[in-house]
Amino acid sequence: MDDRKNTIAGWALFAGIIALGAALLTGEIFHDDDFDSCTAGDGYCPSYVADASVPTGDVEAEQPIAFYLAQGDATRGESQFAKCQACHAINQGGANGIGPGLYNTMGNPIAGHAGYSYSDALAGKGGNWDWDNMNEWLKKPSAFAPGTKMSFAGLPDPQDRADIMLYMNQMGSGIAIPPPPPPVSEDEAAAEDAAADGDAQTAEDTNVELNEDEVEGTGDAGGVDVPEAQ
């Protein structure tokens, strides 16, 4: 009986030693200092920390539609328009279907196609189908005109939208294409970086650290209601 107890105790002690050793090994491999170095940006950042800290799911900020129009392709847009043909005709003289005909749409009034019964949401929108309005409409119709009867979810890719608009513009419209936005010069980029660094420094300067004696209830006098050591 004693031998059995000794055996169980021995195995328990061995398991404890293994667990302790694993914890120490993990601490040696994955140092807290490694994470601090990556945060501080002092030039040392182990790959296992860097890989874990890479943000996922980041979406590049969308540029103005003129940026995508400058590199757009009406031929690609014609292929993209295949998604619209179930509801819309775009040829000259094409009849209204589930949706209105889209020939000569760009540049003309919103909800202005003759003979089609538009929703109140779109009919009351006002304005013309310029590049910005058409871009927002194709991006998400329900956001552009809440209450519209158009059930199409929209095109999330701005380049797809630009391509379709270029194709639509060829089909009876021919309005002027906006010039692409000017590229950001090196001086402008440096100025933006300097402004960002200045804002960060200002925020850092406002964080004033208090000395231990300046915080109520701390310092040599001890905490609140703490008796002096005898």
Rank of each mutant, 00 (worst) to 15 (best):
D51C: 00
D51I: 03
V54K: 12
G57I: 09
G57C: 01
D58R: 14
I65D: 04
A66K: 02
F67C: 00
F67N: 13
A74D: 14
T75V: 05
T75Y: 07
R76S: 13
E78L: 11
E78I: 05
F81L: 11
F81H: 15
F81G: 08
A86R: 15
A86S: 15
A86L: 11
C87T: 03
C87W: 02
A89P: 03
I90M: 09
G93L: 07
G93Y: 04
A95R: 03
A95V: 08
G97D: 10
P100W: 00
L102G: 03
Y103E: 04
Y103D: 11
T105E: 02
T105V: 14
M106V: 14
G107M: 12
P109N: 00
I110Q: 10
H113V: 10
A114E: 15
G115E: 04
G115R: 11
Y118G: 13
Y118P: 05
S119M: 05
A121N: 05
A121V: 05
L122F: 01
A123M: 09
A123Q: 08
G124T: 01
N128W: 03
N128Y: 14
W129G: 05
W131T: 01
W131Y: 05
W131L: 00
D132H: 02
N133E: 10
N133Y: 09
N133G: 02
M134T: 11
N135R: 01
N135Y: 05
N135K: 04
W137D: 01
W137Y: 03
W137S: 02
K139A: 11
K140E: 04
S142L: 11
A143E: 08
F144M: 03
A145Y: 11
A145G: 12
P146N: 08
G147Y: 12
G147N: 06
G147R: 12
T148A: 12
T148L: 02
K149E: 15
F152S: 13
A153T: 15
G154V: 01
G154Q: 10
P156I: 04
P156L: 07
P158Q: 07
P158G: 09
P158Y: 13
Q159N: 01
D160W: 14
D160R: 14
R161M: 01
A162R: 10
A162I: 09
A162F: 14
A162E: 09
A162G: 13
Y167S: 08
Y167V: 15
M168R: 02
M168Y: 00
N169F: 03
N169C: 07
N169I: 06
Q170Y: 02
